[in-house]
Design a binder for these strands. Structure first.
Lengths: 195, 195
DNA sequence: GGTCGAAACGGACCGCGGTCCGCTTTCATT
DNA sequence: AATGAAAGCGGACCGCGGTCCGTTTCGACC
């Protein structure tokens, strides 16, 4: 019996040992970050803790930024799953405006929680289309459900932009705002744009 | 005759040789960046071109990011001067809405022009209050002149956020937007917020 | 089970950012 | 002009991110 059409399964299959090492490295990195600060974690330390050579880490993740981005990816997937199929109001089921406000609060907290990791991942994460694309698309759909008319792609981007880490930092550290104040400001922005 | 109240002149005076070296280093860095890409310019190369030791560069600017931020500072000062006292509509004299739209276009172009430098300066630049503070304050004042009511500090931040480099990159590289499309989107955002 | 090509591995090696400390320069004071 | 102390200087040195290439391991096929 012929094997089931390789092209339909997983064309560029990852070797078993490679997959094992990827998991070991992600776990090792995760644990080391618990212990020290993110900046204090070196690639050599991660490799050692995972029991592999340094070259392997770079082969798997390309760079330090790539490794950090992979760690963020886990949290991001969980968050996206909560948006797509989790409990309301973040997930489906609540009215669009409630969902939108829940989205803003949730996204803000995610960015603050993962702040150090986001910094460490740099543009490898920031330019990740799977992230920015999903987020703006979600907002865009909610805006459509709210009956907003106009340039929805741009408006969605404009709503997401003030939730970015640099902006949040500026508001907390320089403008001395509290999380509640930031969320209140964002809600006002939303209501102005929705009209 | 006593010297003129040191506390009122320049308490932490910079020594003459130090000032000379600062200028030499900034010039050297500037010229090297013309020749190579920003990432290709090393601190040692800057030091060598300026005819000083490597330690001096770090003494003056603290870090590579600090040096890059100092380079950006020149362009930023010129831009702020144009906003404060340059020709309309960016400078004073034009109606607030015209000034605001000119501001957006000008700021966008500045970010795009200095993109590589902004990346290289990292948070040393991004957390610079003299920059974010000036920009949001300017927008805030224009919004006030336009009779906008509500949380002006937040609205100003929300208008500035979509002009940030990561957002612009996302729009150009991922969403395939042209500069005109981005500006049109921003203008629509402005009109919605101004009402 | 044996064979073979491709993929993965590991650690020596390199370049750059950043630090450190003994030496030199500046300049206020006399 | 002499002087003393603080500020500045320079380059050897360190650690980490990233590369390279000879060796090892996997797994597809016989």
């Amino acid at each position: 019996m012929s094997k089931p059409l390789p092209l339909l399964t997983t064309p560029p299959t990852e070797r078993a040992d490679a997959a094992r090492n990827r998991e070991a490295l992600l776990s090792a990195a995760s644990e080391l970050i618990q212990g020290c600060s993110v900046e204090g974690v070196t690639m050599e330390a991660v490799a050692a803790k995972a029991g592999v050579g340094k070259g392997t880490v770079f082969r798997r993740f390309g760079s330090r930024e790539g490794l950090m981005a992979s760690l963020l990816d886990h949290a991001e997937r969980a968050w996206q799953a909560a948006v797509i199929g989790g409990p309301a109001p973040l997930g489906p089921g609540a009215p669009p405006m409630e969902r939108l406000l829940a989205f803003g609060a949730s996204r803000m907290h995610l960015h603050l929680q993962q702040g150090a990791l986001i910094d460490a991942a740099g543009r490898t994460w920031g330019d990740n289309y799977a992230v920015t694309g999903f987020v703006t698309m979600h907002v865009r759909i909610l805006l459509a459900e709210l009956g907003v008319e106009g340039n929805l792609p741009y408006l969605a981007t404009a709503l997401v932009a003030p939730l970015s880490l640099p902006v949040l930092r500026q508001q907390f550290d320089q403008a001395q705002m509290s999380e509640e104040q930031v969320m209140a400001g964002w809600e006002e922005l939303v209501r102005r744009i929705v009209g």
